[in-house]
Design a protein around this nucleic acid. Structure first.
Lengths: 239, 239
DNA sequence: CGCCCTGAACTGGTCATACCAAAATATTGC
DNA sequence: GCAATATTTTGGTATGACCAGTTCAGGGCG
């Protein structure tokens, strides 16, 4: 466990959340954490600095460390996911809505601006997806790659970076979503359609296809949450 | 200069960028930085942890610290801005495009979902803007607040957080943009129109008004960059 | 002259210890 | 029971040390 790797950060967050359950609660002191994880206080402080910069915690001088999950920014989502903090339905719906906002527009722009490289990478991802699908394996990683590549094809680097951090936090969701095998095939088929529209540089069509692709995801989530409410430990009810 | 405050981080980044100009260049060693800023190595390490978590730098064990500005994520933008790293036209155009993607949709959703609280806060911001305008003061801070409040009115918390970090990085741009006095009055007038559309819950109109509001900004930036190219130290040419 | 090898200097990663002052808590005195 | 006081806890900071790869200058050899 060298350096401040993400795993340690996630473990730390998990422990802090386990101790201080509610917003504003006090977390263990630096010295306690150091002892608990058998590392030096310096290591703990470095990690806490990062968590504080993400606004996951607040460090009040001479007082203590306070959990701050509600004010935490976007970059913290990936960490919470790794730490095994349960997803809340509200977060899922918000994320899907955000994806629609981003990616419908991304599809439109990508149809107009995609380079040959973008097309090649998309084709490659789809080939891999087909192979995985044939082997009966889930393709939630490749799904993320496909959508992200479309954003990259907008040639807006900032847009790409934004969606990158967004997708980093989405793996937990994706894993749940692609848990049902039939989703994989359906998703892949829709990706192929979108790809064709991008190749044809048909912005209107690409946009429409992405809209229905994500719209499908939206309604599928609704079903999923209905039937798995309280059954799936990764999804916690409540707002 | 206690704790790891943002100012210190910005100063650190500024210094590192000053020494290691290009992507991949070596930054001063931890010990050098500690001496230069007259702080302990521990402090430097805490700061560097944060910078590394933002992917602004890369720390290679036993080798050194390497500047990494190109892979840096969104959350780093605010820091670069504070550090006085010049804006590049490309970044400005990308940011404006992103704003259009976000806020046109936000205006639509806000028209449908805004609460009384949202309306009240917007009205308050507009009142303050009018007052500032009457005093002849610039209102670039209030502009950000107005736009951010519209995003909040979508009731999508994740959306709000995303735009929050986005706006935190935009102050430098805003300050330049609102440097010209005539922008302030024009912007305020357009805000009032948008506000009316939100109150009337006219999603179509709100969307259209936001589109032209941001479209105006887009073309204004084009002018601004043309006439100030190389003249304004805050804007560096090159891609 | 050029190349390889070697050793010293440098570097990030880690730990232990100590001190400070403010905050939080326990204790005392009334 | 409450207010004043003493004690403990806590984050913030600094110093110094050790480890083991990395880097690089310098020496030796072909």
């Amino acid at each position: 466990m060298n350096k401040i790797d993400t795993d340690f950060l996630a473990t730390l967050v998990a422990h802090i959340v386990a101790v201080a359950r509610a917003h504003g609660d006090k977390a263990p002191s630096e010295r306690e954490l150091a002892e608990h994880f058998a590392v030096s206080r310096g290591q703990v402080r470095e990690s806490l600095s990062i968590l504080e910069s993400m606004q996951i915690i607040e460090r009040r001088a001479k007082s203590g460390i306070y959990l701050n999950p509600e004010t935490a920014g976007l970059d913290s989502m990936a960490l919470f996911a790794r730490a095994g903090v349960p997803l809340m339905p509200r977060q899922i719906f918000e994320a899907v809505e955000l994806r629609k906002i981003h990616e419908i527009k991304a599809a439109e722009l990508a149809a107009m601006r995609a380079t040959g490289d973008n097309h090649a990478r998309l084709r490659d991802i789809l080939d891999q997806s087909a192979a995985q699908l044939a082997k009966g394996e889930g393709l939630h990683k490749l799904d993320g790659a496909f959508h992200l590549e479309i954003v990259r094809a907008t040639q807006n680097e900032m847009f790409y970076k934004l969606c990158q951090s967004f997708y980093a936090a989405a793996e937990q969701r994706h894993a749940i979503y692609f848990g049902k095998p039939e989703r994989n095939a359906k998703s892949h088929a829709e990706h192929l359609q979108i790809f064709d529209a991008l190749i044809a540089r048909d912005a209107i069509l690409a946009q429409a296809l992405m809209n229905s692709h994500l719209g499908g995801a939206q309604s599928y989530w609704t079903e999923l949450l209905e039937e798995q409410k309280a059954a799936n430990p990764l999804i916690r009810s409540g707002a």
